[in-house]
Design a protein around this nucleic acid. Structure first.
Lengths: 230, 230
DNA sequence: CCGAGTATGACACTGCGTATCAGGAAAAGG
DNA sequence: CCTTTTCCTGATACGCAGTGTCATACTCGG
Protein backbone atom coordinates (compact mmCIF):
# COMPACT_ATOMS: atom_id res chain seq x y z
CA UNK A 1 0.00 0.00 0.00
CA UNK A 2 1.96 2.94 -1.25
CA UNK A 3 -0.40 5.80 -0.64
CA UNK A 4 -4.04 5.57 0.29
CA UNK A 5 -4.37 9.27 -0.42
CA UNK A 6 -3.77 8.54 -4.06
CA UNK A 7 -6.80 6.30 -4.18
CA UNK A 8 -8.85 8.96 -2.44
CA UNK A 9 -7.99 11.42 -5.14
CA UNK A 10 -8.84 8.92 -7.84
CA UNK A 11 -12.21 8.23 -6.27
CA UNK A 12 -12.96 11.91 -6.00
CA UNK A 13 -12.11 12.48 -9.64
CA UNK A 14 -14.17 9.50 -10.71
CA UNK A 15 -17.24 10.52 -8.74
CA UNK A 16 -17.03 13.99 -10.19
CA UNK A 17 -16.96 12.62 -13.72
CA UNK A 18 -19.78 10.16 -13.04
CA UNK A 19 -21.85 12.95 -11.62
CA UNK A 20 -21.22 15.32 -14.51
CA UNK A 21 -21.39 13.04 -17.51
CA UNK A 22 -23.35 10.09 -16.14
CA UNK A 23 -22.07 6.75 -14.95
CA UNK A 24 -22.19 4.64 -18.10
CA UNK A 25 -21.32 7.57 -20.31
CA UNK A 26 -18.00 7.80 -18.51
CA UNK A 27 -15.46 5.18 -19.50
CA UNK A 28 -12.68 3.91 -17.34
CA UNK A 29 -10.28 5.55 -19.76
CA UNK A 30 -11.87 8.89 -18.98
CA UNK A 31 -11.42 8.27 -15.27
CA UNK A 32 -7.83 7.18 -15.81
CA UNK A 33 -7.00 10.35 -17.69
CA UNK A 34 -8.79 12.58 -15.18
CA UNK A 35 -7.09 10.89 -12.24
CA UNK A 36 -3.67 10.80 -13.86
CA UNK A 37 -3.19 7.05 -13.68
CA UNK A 38 -3.40 4.25 -16.18
CA UNK A 39 -6.48 2.16 -16.82
CA UNK A 40 -4.55 -0.88 -15.65
CA UNK A 41 -3.86 0.68 -12.27
CA UNK A 42 -7.50 1.63 -11.96
CA UNK A 43 -8.68 -1.95 -12.32
CA UNK A 44 -5.84 -3.22 -10.18
CA UNK A 45 -6.81 -0.98 -7.29
CA UNK A 46 -10.58 -1.14 -7.42
CA UNK A 47 -11.40 -4.32 -9.25
CA UNK A 48 -14.32 -2.92 -11.19
CA UNK A 49 -15.99 0.27 -12.23
CA UNK A 50 -18.69 -0.13 -9.60
CA UNK A 51 -16.13 -0.61 -6.89
CA UNK A 52 -14.74 2.84 -7.54
CA UNK A 53 -18.07 4.26 -6.42
CA UNK A 54 -18.27 2.11 -3.30
CA UNK A 55 -14.59 2.13 -2.35
CA UNK A 56 -15.06 3.95 0.95
CA UNK A 57 -18.19 1.98 1.74
CA UNK A 58 -15.99 -1.07 1.73
CA UNK A 59 -13.87 0.47 4.45
CA UNK A 60 -17.00 1.26 6.41
CA UNK A 61 -18.12 -2.35 6.32
CA UNK A 62 -14.77 -3.43 7.64
CA UNK A 63 -14.91 -0.89 10.44
CA UNK A 64 -18.35 -2.13 11.40
CA UNK A 65 -17.06 -5.67 11.47
CA UNK A 66 -14.22 -4.59 13.72
CA UNK A 67 -16.63 -2.71 15.96
CA UNK A 68 -18.82 -5.75 16.43
CA UNK A 69 -15.91 -8.09 16.91
CA UNK A 70 -14.52 -5.85 19.64
CA UNK A 71 -17.80 -5.56 21.53
CA UNK A 72 -18.38 -7.67 24.60
CA UNK A 73 -21.70 -6.65 26.07
CA UNK A 74 -25.26 -7.14 24.94
CA UNK A 75 -25.27 -8.14 21.25
CA UNK A 76 -28.43 -6.15 20.60
CA UNK A 77 -26.87 -3.05 22.06
CA UNK A 78 -23.75 -3.59 19.98
CA UNK A 79 -25.79 -3.86 16.80
CA UNK A 80 -27.70 -0.73 17.67
CA UNK A 81 -24.41 1.06 18.22
CA UNK A 82 -23.17 -0.23 14.87
CA UNK A 83 -26.26 1.13 13.13
CA UNK A 84 -25.59 4.49 14.71
CA UNK A 85 -21.98 4.35 13.57
CA UNK A 86 -23.03 3.69 9.98
CA UNK A 87 -25.55 6.50 10.01
CA UNK A 88 -22.96 8.86 11.46
CA UNK A 89 -20.50 7.89 8.73
CA UNK A 90 -23.03 9.20 6.23
CA UNK A 91 -24.25 12.30 7.99
CA UNK A 92 -20.77 13.45 8.93
CA UNK A 93 -19.88 13.99 5.28
CA UNK A 94 -23.07 15.23 3.64
CA UNK A 95 -21.48 16.25 0.32
CA UNK A 96 -20.01 12.82 -0.32
CA UNK A 97 -23.14 11.01 0.83
CA UNK A 98 -25.47 13.17 -1.21
CA UNK A 99 -23.45 12.97 -4.37
CA UNK A 100 -23.35 9.21 -4.17
CA UNK A 101 -27.06 9.15 -3.35
CA UNK A 102 -27.82 11.02 -6.56
CA UNK A 103 -25.54 8.72 -8.49
CA UNK A 104 -26.96 5.52 -7.09
CA UNK A 105 -30.54 6.65 -7.55
CA UNK A 106 -29.92 7.38 -11.19
CA UNK A 107 -28.40 4.06 -12.22
CA UNK A 108 -29.95 0.65 -11.71
CA UNK A 109 -26.59 -1.13 -11.69
CA UNK A 110 -25.42 0.98 -8.77
CA UNK A 111 -28.68 0.47 -6.93
CA UNK A 112 -28.18 -3.27 -7.06
CA UNK A 113 -24.63 -2.84 -5.93
CA UNK A 114 -25.75 -0.85 -2.92
CA UNK A 115 -28.27 -3.53 -2.05
CA UNK A 116 -25.42 -6.00 -1.96
CA UNK A 117 -23.60 -3.64 0.37
CA UNK A 118 -26.60 -3.42 2.69
CA UNK A 119 -26.85 -7.19 2.66
CA UNK A 120 -23.33 -7.39 3.97
CA UNK A 121 -24.22 -5.19 6.93
CA UNK A 122 -27.24 -7.34 7.53
CA UNK A 123 -25.13 -10.49 7.45
CA UNK A 124 -22.74 -8.96 9.96
CA UNK A 125 -25.61 -8.07 12.26
CA UNK A 126 -27.16 -11.50 11.94
CA UNK A 127 -23.88 -13.18 12.66
CA UNK A 128 -23.27 -11.07 15.72
CA UNK A 129 -26.77 -11.52 17.07
CA UNK A 130 -26.64 -15.28 16.74
CA UNK A 131 -23.17 -15.75 18.18
CA UNK A 132 -22.65 -19.15 19.56
CA UNK A 133 -26.23 -20.20 19.10
CA UNK A 134 -26.75 -23.32 17.10
CA UNK A 135 -30.44 -23.22 17.84
CA UNK A 136 -32.31 -22.51 14.61
CA UNK A 137 -34.99 -20.68 16.58
CA UNK A 138 -32.40 -18.21 17.73
CA UNK A 139 -31.08 -17.94 14.21
CA UNK A 140 -34.50 -16.96 12.97
CA UNK A 141 -34.77 -14.35 15.69
CA UNK A 142 -31.35 -12.99 14.81
CA UNK A 143 -32.13 -12.76 11.12
CA UNK A 144 -35.45 -11.07 11.69
CA UNK A 145 -34.01 -8.58 14.13
CA UNK A 146 -31.07 -7.80 11.86
CA UNK A 147 -33.41 -7.21 8.94
CA UNK A 148 -35.59 -4.97 11.07
CA UNK A 149 -32.63 -2.92 12.30
CA UNK A 150 -31.36 -2.49 8.76
CA UNK A 151 -34.82 -1.42 7.63
CA UNK A 152 -35.03 1.14 10.42
CA UNK A 153 -31.59 2.47 9.62
CA UNK A 154 -32.34 2.75 5.93
CA UNK A 155 -35.63 4.45 6.67
CA UNK A 156 -33.91 7.18 8.65
CA UNK A 157 -31.01 7.43 6.24
CA UNK A 158 -33.23 7.79 3.20
CA UNK A 159 -35.28 10.46 4.88
CA UNK A 160 -32.12 12.39 5.64
CA UNK A 161 -30.76 11.92 2.12
CA UNK A 162 -33.97 13.22 0.64
CA UNK A 163 -33.95 16.30 2.80
CA UNK A 164 -30.71 16.81 4.71
CA UNK A 165 -31.51 20.31 5.86
CA UNK A 166 -34.85 19.39 7.31
CA UNK A 167 -35.55 20.67 10.76
CA UNK A 168 -36.71 18.60 13.68
CA UNK A 169 -34.88 15.83 15.49
CA UNK A 170 -31.37 14.95 14.42
CA UNK A 171 -30.84 11.85 12.31
CA UNK A 172 -29.29 10.12 15.29
CA UNK A 173 -32.35 10.90 17.40
CA UNK A 174 -34.64 9.63 14.68
CA UNK A 175 -32.65 6.45 14.40
CA UNK A 176 -32.78 5.94 18.14
CA UNK A 177 -36.53 6.34 18.03
CA UNK A 178 -36.83 3.94 15.12
CA UNK A 179 -34.63 1.37 16.83
CA UNK A 180 -36.73 1.69 19.96
CA UNK A 181 -39.75 0.99 17.83
CA UNK A 182 -38.09 -2.07 16.35
CA UNK A 183 -36.87 -3.54 19.61
CA UNK A 184 -40.20 -2.87 21.24
CA UNK A 185 -41.44 -5.37 18.70
CA UNK A 186 -44.26 -3.39 17.29
CA UNK A 187 -43.63 -4.57 13.77
CA UNK A 188 -47.31 -4.63 13.00
CA UNK A 189 -48.96 -1.23 12.63
CA UNK A 190 -51.31 -0.53 15.54
CA UNK A 191 -54.37 -0.35 13.36
CA UNK A 192 -53.83 -3.67 11.63
CA UNK A 193 -55.03 -6.97 12.83
CA UNK A 194 -51.95 -9.07 13.17
CA UNK A 195 -53.61 -12.12 14.58
CA UNK A 196 -53.77 -15.51 12.99
CA UNK A 197 -54.35 -15.40 9.29
CA UNK A 198 -57.98 -14.90 8.39
CA UNK A 199 -59.44 -15.61 5.03
CA UNK A 200 -58.50 -12.84 2.66
CA UNK A 201 -61.04 -10.25 1.61
CA UNK A 202 -62.20 -12.29 -1.36
CA UNK A 203 -59.22 -12.66 -3.63
CA UNK A 204 -57.16 -15.15 -1.71
CA UNK A 205 -57.91 -17.81 0.77
CA UNK A 206 -55.30 -18.82 3.28
CA UNK A 207 -56.19 -21.67 5.54
CA UNK A 208 -54.04 -23.05 8.32
CA UNK A 209 -55.11 -26.09 10.23
CA UNK A 210 -53.42 -28.53 12.52
CA UNK A 211 -52.82 -31.69 10.62
CA UNK A 212 -54.33 -33.63 13.41
CA UNK A 213 -57.66 -32.54 12.07
CA UNK A 214 -59.33 -35.14 9.95
CA UNK A 215 -59.81 -34.66 6.26
CA UNK A 216 -63.55 -34.28 6.68
CA UNK A 217 -63.09 -31.68 9.35
CA UNK A 218 -60.76 -29.66 7.15
CA UNK A 219 -63.15 -29.94 4.23
CA UNK A 220 -66.01 -28.84 6.38
CA UNK A 221 -64.17 -25.81 7.61
CA UNK A 222 -63.03 -24.85 4.15
CA UNK A 223 -66.59 -25.24 2.93
CA UNK A 224 -67.78 -23.01 5.73
CA UNK A 225 -65.13 -20.41 4.92
CA UNK A 226 -66.31 -20.41 1.34
CA UNK A 227 -69.76 -19.47 2.46
CA UNK A 228 -71.43 -22.82 2.80
CA UNK A 229 -70.93 -24.17 -0.67
CA UNK A 230 -72.42 -27.60 -1.21
CA UNK B 1 -45.26 -13.45 -28.42
CA UNK B 2 -44.68 -16.36 -30.69
CA UNK B 3 -44.06 -19.15 -28.23
CA UNK B 4 -43.38 -18.83 -24.56
CA UNK B 5 -42.43 -22.45 -24.51
CA UNK B 6 -39.45 -21.56 -26.63
CA UNK B 7 -38.10 -19.34 -23.89
CA UNK B 8 -38.64 -22.10 -21.37
CA UNK B 9 -36.54 -24.43 -23.41
CA UNK B 10 -33.83 -21.85 -23.81
CA UNK B 11 -33.72 -21.27 -20.08
CA UNK B 12 -33.50 -24.97 -19.40
CA UNK B 13 -30.64 -25.39 -21.84
CA UNK B 14 -28.83 -22.39 -20.40
CA UNK B 15 -29.17 -23.55 -16.79
CA UNK B 16 -27.88 -26.95 -17.74
CA UNK B 17 -24.81 -25.44 -19.37
CA UNK B 18 -24.20 -23.06 -16.49
CA UNK B 19 -24.44 -25.93 -14.09
CA UNK B 20 -22.08 -28.18 -16.03
CA UNK B 21 -19.39 -25.76 -17.18
CA UNK B 22 -19.81 -22.93 -14.71
CA UNK B 23 -21.54 -19.60 -15.22
CA UNK B 24 -18.76 -17.37 -16.47
CA UNK B 25 -17.09 -20.20 -18.34
CA UNK B 26 -20.22 -20.44 -20.48
CA UNK B 27 -20.57 -17.75 -23.12
CA UNK B 28 -23.79 -16.51 -24.58
CA UNK B 29 -22.68 -18.02 -27.85
CA UNK B 30 -22.56 -21.41 -26.17
CA UNK B 31 -26.07 -20.92 -24.87
CA UNK B 32 -27.26 -19.76 -28.26
CA UNK B 33 -25.89 -22.85 -29.96
CA UNK B 34 -27.23 -25.19 -27.30
CA UNK B 35 -30.67 -23.59 -27.41
CA UNK B 36 -30.81 -23.41 -31.18
CA UNK B 37 -31.29 -19.65 -31.40
CA UNK B 38 -29.04 -16.77 -32.27
CA UNK B 39 -27.12 -14.69 -29.77
CA UNK B 40 -29.15 -11.67 -30.87
CA UNK B 41 -32.40 -13.36 -29.99
CA UNK B 42 -31.00 -14.36 -26.63
CA UNK B 43 -30.25 -10.79 -25.65
CA UNK B 44 -33.47 -9.56 -27.13
CA UNK B 45 -35.53 -11.94 -25.04
CA UNK B 46 -33.70 -11.83 -21.73
CA UNK B 47 -31.78 -8.60 -21.76
CA UNK B 48 -28.70 -9.96 -20.09
CA UNK B 49 -26.92 -13.15 -19.19
CA UNK B 50 -28.03 -12.90 -15.57
CA UNK B 51 -31.63 -12.47 -16.61
CA UNK B 52 -31.58 -15.87 -18.24
CA UNK B 53 -31.03 -17.39 -14.83
CA UNK B 54 -33.77 -15.34 -13.18
CA UNK B 55 -36.28 -15.36 -16.02
CA UNK B 56 -38.96 -17.28 -14.19
CA UNK B 57 -38.28 -15.37 -10.99
CA UNK B 58 -39.31 -12.29 -12.88
CA UNK B 59 -42.67 -13.86 -13.62
CA UNK B 60 -43.00 -14.75 -9.97
CA UNK B 61 -42.45 -11.16 -8.92
CA UNK B 62 -45.15 -10.05 -11.29
CA UNK B 63 -47.56 -12.65 -10.00
CA UNK B 64 -46.90 -11.50 -6.46
CA UNK B 65 -47.56 -7.94 -7.50
CA UNK B 66 -50.82 -9.02 -9.09
CA UNK B 67 -51.75 -11.01 -6.00
CA UNK B 68 -51.22 -8.01 -3.75
CA UNK B 69 -52.93 -5.59 -6.09
CA UNK B 70 -55.97 -7.84 -6.22
CA UNK B 71 -56.23 -8.27 -2.47
CA UNK B 72 -58.74 -6.22 -0.53
CA UNK B 73 -58.61 -7.47 3.01
CA UNK B 74 -56.08 -7.03 5.75
CA UNK B 75 -52.76 -5.97 4.19
CA UNK B 76 -50.76 -7.99 6.69
CA UNK B 77 -52.70 -11.12 5.82
CA UNK B 78 -52.20 -10.45 2.13
CA UNK B 79 -48.46 -10.11 2.58
CA UNK B 80 -48.35 -13.31 4.58
CA UNK B 81 -50.25 -15.05 1.82
CA UNK B 82 -47.82 -13.63 -0.71
CA UNK B 83 -44.87 -15.00 1.25
CA UNK B 84 -46.54 -18.39 1.24
CA UNK B 85 -47.10 -18.15 -2.48
CA UNK B 86 -43.44 -17.39 -3.11
CA UNK B 87 -42.27 -20.23 -0.92
CA UNK B 88 -44.64 -22.60 -2.65
CA UNK B 89 -43.34 -21.52 -6.04
CA UNK B 90 -39.95 -22.78 -4.94
CA UNK B 91 -40.91 -25.96 -3.14
CA UNK B 92 -43.31 -27.07 -5.85
CA UNK B 93 -40.41 -27.49 -8.28
CA UNK B 94 -37.49 -28.74 -6.23
CA UNK B 95 -35.23 -29.63 -9.16
CA UNK B 96 -35.38 -26.16 -10.64
CA UNK B 97 -35.04 -24.43 -7.29
CA UNK B 98 -32.13 -26.57 -6.17
CA UNK B 99 -30.21 -26.23 -9.39
CA UNK B 100 -30.52 -22.48 -9.27
CA UNK B 101 -29.58 -22.50 -5.61
CA UNK B 102 -26.33 -24.29 -6.40
CA UNK B 103 -25.69 -21.89 -9.26
CA UNK B 104 -26.37 -18.77 -7.27
CA UNK B 105 -24.30 -19.92 -4.31
CA UNK B 106 -21.32 -20.55 -6.54
CA UNK B 107 -21.17 -17.17 -8.26
CA UNK B 108 -21.01 -13.80 -6.54
CA UNK B 109 -22.58 -11.97 -9.45
CA UNK B 110 -25.68 -14.15 -9.25
CA UNK B 111 -25.85 -13.77 -5.49
CA UNK B 112 -26.03 -10.02 -5.89
CA UNK B 113 -28.64 -10.43 -8.55
CA UNK B 114 -30.78 -12.52 -6.26
CA UNK B 115 -30.47 -9.92 -3.54
CA UNK B 116 -31.88 -7.41 -5.97
CA UNK B 117 -34.73 -9.80 -6.61
CA UNK B 118 -35.45 -10.13 -2.91
CA UNK B 119 -35.38 -6.38 -2.58
CA UNK B 120 -38.13 -6.15 -5.14
CA UNK B 121 -40.34 -8.45 -3.10
CA UNK B 122 -39.57 -6.37 -0.07
CA UNK B 123 -40.48 -3.19 -1.90
CA UNK B 124 -43.78 -4.74 -2.98
CA UNK B 125 -44.53 -5.76 0.58
CA UNK B 126 -43.63 -2.35 1.93
CA UNK B 127 -45.76 -0.63 -0.64
CA UNK B 128 -48.73 -2.83 0.09
CA UNK B 129 -48.40 -2.50 3.84
CA UNK B 130 -48.24 1.28 3.69
CA UNK B 131 -51.06 1.77 1.22
CA UNK B 132 -52.60 5.14 1.49
CA UNK B 133 -50.62 6.10 4.54
CA UNK B 134 -48.70 9.32 4.30
CA UNK B 135 -47.75 9.07 7.93
CA UNK B 136 -43.99 8.42 8.17
CA UNK B 137 -44.55 6.41 11.34
CA UNK B 138 -46.68 4.00 9.38
CA UNK B 139 -44.09 3.91 6.65
CA UNK B 140 -41.43 2.89 9.13
CA UNK B 141 -43.70 0.18 10.48
CA UNK B 142 -44.38 -1.08 6.98
CA UNK B 143 -40.72 -1.18 6.04
CA UNK B 144 -39.73 -2.96 9.21
CA UNK B 145 -42.51 -5.50 8.92
CA UNK B 146 -41.76 -6.15 5.26
CA UNK B 147 -38.09 -6.68 6.04
CA UNK B 148 -38.99 -9.04 8.86
CA UNK B 149 -41.36 -11.06 6.70
CA UNK B 150 -38.74 -11.35 3.99
CA UNK B 151 -36.17 -12.46 6.54
CA UNK B 152 -38.53 -15.10 7.88
CA UNK B 153 -39.32 -16.33 4.42
CA UNK B 154 -35.66 -16.50 3.44
CA UNK B 155 -34.83 -18.29 6.66
CA UNK B 156 -37.30 -21.05 5.91
CA UNK B 157 -36.44 -21.16 2.24
CA UNK B 158 -32.71 -21.45 2.86
CA UNK B 159 -33.24 -24.23 5.38
CA UNK B 160 -35.29 -26.11 2.82
CA UNK B 161 -32.77 -25.51 0.05
CA UNK B 162 -29.97 -26.81 2.21
CA UNK B 163 -31.84 -29.96 3.07
CA UNK B 164 -34.98 -30.47 1.00
CA UNK B 165 -35.56 -34.02 2.13
CA UNK B 166 -35.38 -33.21 5.79
CA UNK B 167 -38.10 -34.64 7.90
CA UNK B 168 -40.28 -32.67 10.29
CA UNK B 169 -42.77 -29.96 9.52
CA UNK B 170 -43.38 -28.96 5.92
CA UNK B 171 -41.80 -25.75 4.62
CA UNK B 172 -45.20 -24.11 4.62
CA UNK B 173 -45.73 -25.02 8.23
CA UNK B 174 -42.31 -23.69 9.14
CA UNK B 175 -43.04 -20.47 7.34
CA UNK B 176 -46.34 -20.10 9.09
CA UNK B 177 -44.61 -20.57 12.40
CA UNK B 178 -41.90 -18.09 11.49
CA UNK B 179 -44.46 -15.52 10.35
CA UNK B 180 -46.35 -15.99 13.58
CA UNK B 181 -43.11 -15.28 15.37
CA UNK B 182 -42.59 -12.14 13.32
CA UNK B 183 -46.07 -10.76 13.71
CA UNK B 184 -46.04 -11.54 17.39
CA UNK B 185 -43.35 -8.90 17.40
CA UNK B 186 -40.85 -10.68 19.51
CA UNK B 187 -37.91 -9.81 17.30
CA UNK B 188 -35.53 -9.69 20.22
CA UNK B 189 -34.99 -13.06 21.82
CA UNK B 190 -35.51 -12.87 25.56
CA UNK B 191 -32.99 -14.49 27.81
CA UNK B 192 -35.48 -17.22 28.58
CA UNK B 193 -35.82 -20.55 26.89
CA UNK B 194 -38.42 -21.06 24.23
CA UNK B 195 -40.23 -17.79 24.15
CA UNK B 196 -43.80 -17.26 23.16
CA UNK B 197 -43.49 -19.00 19.86
CA UNK B 198 -46.49 -21.26 19.39
CA UNK B 199 -45.56 -24.86 19.80
CA UNK B 200 -45.78 -26.14 16.28
CA UNK B 201 -45.80 -29.71 17.40
CA UNK B 202 -48.05 -31.18 14.77
CA UNK B 203 -48.16 -30.89 11.05
CA UNK B 204 -50.28 -28.18 9.59
CA UNK B 205 -51.90 -27.76 6.26
CA UNK B 206 -51.50 -24.44 4.52
CA UNK B 207 -53.47 -23.78 1.42
CA UNK B 208 -53.15 -20.72 -0.78
CA UNK B 209 -55.44 -20.31 -3.73
CA UNK B 210 -56.43 -17.41 -5.93
CA UNK B 211 -60.02 -16.60 -5.14
CA UNK B 212 -60.83 -16.69 -8.80
CA UNK B 213 -61.03 -20.41 -8.29
CA UNK B 214 -64.53 -21.59 -7.61
CA UNK B 215 -65.48 -23.06 -4.29
CA UNK B 216 -65.78 -26.51 -5.79
CA UNK B 217 -62.36 -26.25 -7.33
CA UNK B 218 -60.84 -25.28 -4.03
CA UNK B 219 -62.62 -28.13 -2.30
CA UNK B 220 -61.45 -30.53 -4.95
CA UNK B 221 -57.87 -29.46 -4.60
CA UNK B 222 -57.97 -29.62 -0.83
CA UNK B 223 -59.48 -33.05 -1.07
CA UNK B 224 -56.74 -34.13 -3.44
CA UNK B 225 -54.09 -32.72 -1.13
CA UNK B 226 -55.54 -34.72 1.71
CA UNK B 227 -55.01 -37.89 -0.21
CA UNK B 228 -58.15 -38.25 -2.23
CA UNK B 229 -60.68 -38.44 0.56
CA UNK B 230 -64.20 -38.74 -0.80
C1' DC C 1 -51.89 -12.47 -53.87
C1' DC C 2 -50.03 -8.56 -51.44
C1' DG C 3 -48.58 -4.98 -47.95
C1' DA C 4 -47.93 -4.17 -42.64
C1' DG C 5 -46.15 -5.48 -38.57
C1' DT C 6 -42.96 -8.50 -36.20
C1' DA C 7 -39.58 -11.96 -34.75
C1' DT C 8 -35.18 -13.44 -36.16
C1' DG C 9 -30.30 -13.67 -37.59
C1' DA C 10 -25.91 -11.65 -39.14
C1' DC C 11 -22.63 -8.21 -38.45
C1' DA C 12 -20.08 -4.42 -36.52
C1' DC C 13 -18.86 -1.79 -32.58
C1' DT C 14 -18.09 0.01 -27.70
C1' DG C 15 -16.31 -0.88 -23.35
C1' DC C 16 -15.51 -3.72 -19.11
C1' DG C 17 -12.47 -6.87 -17.18
C1' DT C 18 -8.26 -10.09 -17.46
C1' DA C 19 -3.75 -11.69 -18.57
C1' DT C 20 0.89 -10.87 -19.79
C1' DC C 21 5.13 -8.51 -20.31
C1' DA C 22 8.50 -4.82 -19.84
C1' DG C 23 10.43 -0.92 -17.34
C1' DG C 24 11.36 1.79 -13.22
C1' DA C 25 11.42 2.98 -8.36
C1' DA C 26 12.06 1.62 -3.80
C1' DA C 27 13.80 -1.50 -0.55
C1' DA C 28 17.19 -5.28 0.88
C1' DG C 29 21.66 -6.83 1.05
C1' DG C 30 26.45 -6.88 0.53
C1' DC D 1 28.12 2.66 -3.95
C1' DC D 2 26.59 -0.96 -6.60
C1' DT D 3 23.71 -5.13 -7.18
C1' DT D 4 19.75 -7.90 -6.54
C1' DT D 5 15.15 -8.47 -5.34
C1' DT D 6 10.59 -6.88 -4.97
C1' DC D 7 6.75 -4.26 -6.00
C1' DC D 8 4.17 -0.99 -8.50
C1' DT D 9 3.03 0.92 -12.80
C1' DG D 10 1.96 1.31 -17.76
C1' DA D 11 1.21 -0.73 -22.31
C1' DT D 12 -0.65 -4.12 -25.27
C1' DA D 13 -3.63 -7.82 -26.58
C1' DC D 14 -7.59 -10.49 -25.91
C1' DG D 15 -12.37 -12.47 -24.55
C1' DC D 16 -16.86 -11.50 -24.01
C1' DA D 17 -21.18 -8.91 -22.58
C1' DG D 18 -24.27 -5.82 -24.36
C1' DT D 19 -26.08 -2.40 -28.15
C1' DG D 20 -27.36 -0.86 -32.62
C1' DT D 21 -28.34 -1.59 -37.41
C1' DC D 22 -29.86 -3.81 -41.41
C1' DA D 23 -31.62 -7.55 -44.23
C1' DT D 24 -34.63 -11.59 -44.32
C1' DA D 25 -38.46 -14.67 -43.24
C1' DC D 26 -42.93 -15.33 -41.13
C1' DT D 27 -47.75 -14.09 -39.84
C1' DC D 28 -51.93 -11.77 -40.21
C1' DG D 29 -55.50 -9.21 -42.41
C1' DG D 30 -57.34 -7.50 -46.72
Amino acid sequence: MTERAGSRGVVAAALRLFDERGFEATTMDDVAVAAGVSRSTLFRRFGSKDDVVFADQEELVESVRALLDASHGDPVAAVRAAAHAVLRAYTSRPEVALRRYRLVRAHAALRDRELAMTARYQALFTQHLSRGYGDPRRLLAAEVLAAAVIAAHNHVLRAWLRDPGEGGPSPAARLEEALEFVVAGRAAPPGGSGGPVPAGGGEVLVAVYPAGASGEEVLARVRAALGGAP
